[in-house]
Amino acid sequence: MAFTDRLYLTALKKVTVRAAAHTSLDKGPARTPPAQDAMGGPVMIYTPASALTSPGIMFRDLFVDMRKAFDLAWRLARRDITAQYRQSYLGYLWAFIMPLANTVVWIMLNSTGVVRITDTSIPYPAYVFTGTMMWQMLVEAVQSPLQQVTAAKNFLTKLRFPREALIIAGMLKQTFNLMIKLVILVPAVMLLGVKPDWHIFLAPVAMLLIVITGVSLGLLISPVGMLYNDVGRVVPLLAQFIMYLTPVVFAMPQGGVMSTIFQWNPATPLILTGRAWLTGSGTPMLGPFMIVAACALLLLLIGTMLYRLALPILIERLST
C-alpha cells in the first residue's frame, strides 16, 4: 500500500503541472463557460451555526419558502385526495362512517342504561354525532404533521424543497374533509331534531380552529416523533383518554373534580362552541374560545419555527 501511495504522489506532481493545458484539450471546446454571470442569482450558505443566531435571515427564508410552499402544498393535497378517493369504492362516505359508528355505540349505551347521560341541551344522538366528528377532526389534525412527514420520508431525505408544504398540505386535506363533513353534518343534525340558526355560518370557523389547534400540537410533537415512533403510538391512546375529559360524548358535568377538569381542558371550548354554533344553541364559552384561538395561532407559529429548525437535524438521523 505504501508503494501505491508513493506512486500516486510522484504521478500527482507531474499531473498538477500539466493539468492546466490538459483539461481544455481532453474535454473539447463544448465546455467553455457562458458569459452569463450567476452572481446575481440566489446565494445559499450553510454553516454549523444555529439558525436562531440570525433571526432576520431565518424569517426572510421562512417567508420565501412559505410562498413556494403553498404551490406545492396545493399539489400534494390534490394528489392525496384524488388518489384516496380514486382507490376507494365508498369514497367520501368514509368521512362519516367512523363518527356514525361511534354515535350508534353511544346511543345504544345510553338507551340501554349502561351509561346514563343527562342534560344535553340538544337530542343526545345529535350531541354525540357532532361531538365525535369534531373530536375526530382534532385527533386527525394532531396526527397529520407526523403522518405527512413520514409519508414523504423517501424524498424528504434526498431532495430539498420547502418542507412547510407537507404541513400545509395536511391542513388543506383536513379542510377538504371538513367541508365534506359539513355537507353531511348539517342535514344529519337537522334530521336528528335540531334547528340550526344563523350561527351555523360560524361553525366552519370553529372547525378550522380545531384543525389549527390540532396541527400546532402535531407540529410540536413531530420532531421527537420522527426520531422515536413511540410518539406516534401514544397520540391515539392519549386522545382516547382525553376524549372522556372533553364534552364529546358526555355532557359537561355539574360540579366536582370532573367539572373543573372539563372546564380547564382547552379542547372543551373548541368542541362546545363548535357544536353550539352548529346546532343553534347560542355561543357558550366565547371567552375561553377566544383564548384558545389566540394560543393556537401562537402555537402554530412556534410549531412552524420548531419544525423548520428541527428538520435538517432530523434528516441526518433518518437518512440512508
Partner: peptide
C-alpha cells in the same frame, strides 16, 4: 443540497441548485 447541517466548515452556493436525485419524487 442543504439536507443536513455541517458540523464544521462552510458551504457557499451561488445560483439555482438542481438535483437529478430521487427521480419521480412525489
Amino acid at each position: 443540497n442543504g439536507l443536513m447541517k455541517p458540523d464544521k466548515g462552510r458551504i457557499e452556493l451561488h445560483g439555482r441548485v438542481g438535483a437529478l436525485i430521487a427521480l419521480g419524487a412525489g
